[in-house]
Simulated scan of single mutants.
Amino acid sequence: MARGSPRPDDSTLVFDAMHRRDVPAVSAIERVSFPTPFPPRVYRAVLADPAARWRVARCADRSSIAGYVGWFLAPDARAHLAKIAVAPAWRRRHVGDRLLRHTLDTAAHEGAELLTLEVRVTNTPALAFYRKWGFAELYRSPAHYPDTGEDGLILAHTIIPPRSG
């Protein structure tokens, strides 16, 4: 955003299922967020996967997408976080926190007990974010990322089940 421009109002965000019509906006965020972005066809394919849970944080007026998260629910009470990213204009506004909180709450309601993810060892901001949320390192995966040969860290977070009653 240009200096002096009003910042987006994050109080007006709504969380919604990602749809095919969202792929161009999500792909634009993807391109500025990851060194090797998913091509749009990957998003279109994953939206058809019944284990996939892809959500967007969109402005209440539906004018733009602030960020997105994608995760998969496995039958063994595990969930795997595949992607989380926030549009540049929305960064430092706790949108990532809200997306992750939404993911943890939804995964808990769907019976997941553990959320895993992988992150590049050099992605210091992401590592700080996940550690702030209580993710712990399970192991280091050598040459995990084929685009660079970089190691990955596999992290996990225990999901607290929702209280009943």
Rank of each mutant, 00 (worst) to 15 (best):
M1Y: 05
M1V: 11
A2K: 12
G4C: 09
S5G: 02
P6T: 09
R7I: 00
D9T: 02
D10E: 12
S11H: 12
T12V: 08
L13F: 05
L13G: 01
V14T: 13
F15S: 07
F15C: 08
F15D: 07
F15V: 06
D16S: 14
D16Q: 13
M18K: 09
H19N: 05
R20M: 04
R21N: 10
D22I: 11
V23T: 12
V23K: 08
S27E: 08
S27G: 13
A28Q: 14
I29K: 08
P35M: 08
T36G: 03
T36K: 08
P37N: 09
P39K: 11
P40Q: 02
A45S: 14
A45T: 15
V46A: 13
L47E: 11
D49I: 05
A51M: 11
W54S: 09
V56N: 05
A57V: 07
C59K: 13
S64C: 15
G67H: 08
V69R: 01
G70I: 00
G70D: 03
F72E: 14
L73A: 10
P75V: 01
D76I: 05
A77F: 10
A79V: 01
H80F: 14
L81F: 02
K83I: 11
K83R: 15
A85N: 11
A87L: 11
A87R: 06
A87W: 05
A87E: 11
P88T: 12
A89H: 13
H94N: 12
V95W: 03
R98V: 01
R98M: 03
R98W: 03
R101M: 07
T103F: 09
A107R: 02
A108I: 08
E110H: 13
E110N: 10
E110P: 06
E110S: 08
L114A: 01
L114V: 04
L115A: 06
T116P: 02
T116S: 10
T116W: 03
R120L: 05
V121R: 04
V121Q: 04
T122P: 02
N123V: 00
P125W: 00
P125M: 00
L127V: 08
A128I: 02
G134Q: 06
A136I: 04
E137H: 02
L138Q: 13
L138N: 03
R140A: 06
A143N: 05
A143E: 04
Y145T: 07
Y145N: 09
P146A: 14
P146I: 11
D147A: 15
T148E: 07
G149K: 06
G149S: 02
E150I: 06
D151R: 04
L153P: 00
L155C: 04
A156C: 04
A156G: 03
H157T: 02
H157P: 02
T158N: 10
I160E: 15
P162H: 14
P162T: 09
R163S: 13
S164E: 12
G165Q: 09
G165E: 09
G165C: 08
G165I: 05
